[in-house]
Design a protein around this nucleic acid. Structure first.
Lengths: 108, 108
DNA sequence: AAACTATATTCAAATATTAAAATATATCAT
DNA sequence: ATGATATATTTTAATATTTGAATATAGTTT
């Protein structure tokens, strides 16, 4: 597998993370698995659209589905996903903070 | 700032990471800053397109530019970006490995 | 100031992503 | 078998992203 190909696969995982609803799903699954119904109730999203997002994430191995009767339970495929998301969120927060600091400097 | 808005900004950072060339740039800047010329020479990409990618990353604070004469030196805006990318790459590698394991199981 | 070098920006066409709507499938209960 | 519930898939229109081509800008050298 070439480095180029790895970068492409890497990018496609990032692409899968590049959606607010999907990030919200990942956060909801942080500690425990949840059924599709539970996710639908916890979020502002239609069942069909939620299912589309879950299908995408399943394909990339970001979440794993497990059927139990009528319900399907979803969980994260790899706990490192949460670590990665948390790191990116920290970067975001730090960027916001230093922007705020810049604004302060400009006012002074 | 609402959680929704945070998820949107978070997603937009992930979106910025969701491109193989941009990931390659980040990796090249891992340890040291580099000029645009150096980056152009290290990668299979046109100068104009590289500049477009750098502009996007600048806007998101992922990368910082510093002019020195004719050259512009780029460096990472936050070392945590590298950590996050490395984590996602680990997730990718682990997914590839468990896929390979699955194929083995299917053959056996 | 004219030429040169390094880098950035704008525009447009091709391509990819998103979400709603409609429909389909799987399991369970009767 | 029928109906009910939970979830998934397909299609489509709107929107966003990507890249090459052309052009612009900033700093330097002569």
């Amino acid at each position: 597998m070439s480095e180029q190909q790895l970068y492409e696969l890497h990018a496609s995982i990032c692409q899968t993370l590049a959606n607010p609803k999907r990030l919200e799903i990942i956060n909801l699954l942080r500690d425990d698995e949840m059924t599709v119904s539970e996710l639908t109730e916890s979020m502002q999203i239609s069942q069909a659209n939620l299912s589309q997002h879950l299908a995408l994430m399943r394909q990339k191995g970001i979440v794993i589905a497990r059927r139990e009767g009528l319900n399907i339970h979803y969980r994260l495929g790899n706990p490192k996903i949460i670590k990665a998301c948390d790191l990116v969120r920290q970067v975001l927060i730090e960027n916001l903070e230093s922007n705020a600091a810049l604004v302060e400097t400009a006012r002074a």
